[in-house]
Design a protein around this nucleic acid. Sequence first.
DNA 1: CCCTGATTCGC
DNA 2: GCGAATCAGG
Length: 228
Amino acid sequence: MGQTGPDAGQRNRYMDWTDETIARLRELWSQGLSTAEIGRQLSITKNAVVGKAHRLGLPPRPSPIRNRKVKDGETPSTETPRRKPPTRKPAAPKAEASADLLAEKTEAKPAAAKTDAPKPAPAKPSPALESIMASPPPRPVAAKVDSPARVAPVAPEPRVPPPVRPAPPPRFTASIDRPARRGPSCCWPIGDPGTPGFHFCGATPLPGKPYCAEHAAIAYVKIRDRRD
DNA sequence: CCCTGATTCGC
DNA sequence: GCGAATCAGG
């Protein structure tokens, strides 16, 4: 008879962290996406993202908060280490929403270069994604983006606008991760973020740009000439 | 208030 | 090992 499987105990309670999902997490994490953003694209919570990221040993990014951890024996006098009380909820097995993942797949994929579409960039995969697209230099640190959804339309250059961005600091020290064979790869999203078929271009990007020549061409639309 | 990530701790 | 809950800063 058909056995249900000896190891069928694993329900869909947790994210299936396969090599692929992990790779995607690392990719997105490396790209400087927010934990919430990564979680959203992976259909998981930011907690899961950050938790897994730490377990994977991914390089911590500039935390908005201070070091909650002090060196051992660090003036533990007046400052009482307020360990947060374990008043955490005893158990909150909220109902799982299964068909909840497909409720937001309204995003559009990077349409091919349209002949008359000045905005070939992905319709709007994500606010954060849009940010990285608008910013060639994916700064792993000091990412000082005000708000992903509050980017004011920058004024176009008057003329002779050099398409070169100032200071693309590739801070790839190659230490924590980046085995070696992992130079900069084109991070143009292909497919729907969150679907198994989703992946990045991976081609060699132009110097100072996150995209390869092909995608950079469609990613960076030439600013319309401003005539007075 | 919103956002962010880090840490903790129950499962 | 996983992730909700919580904490903490901007």
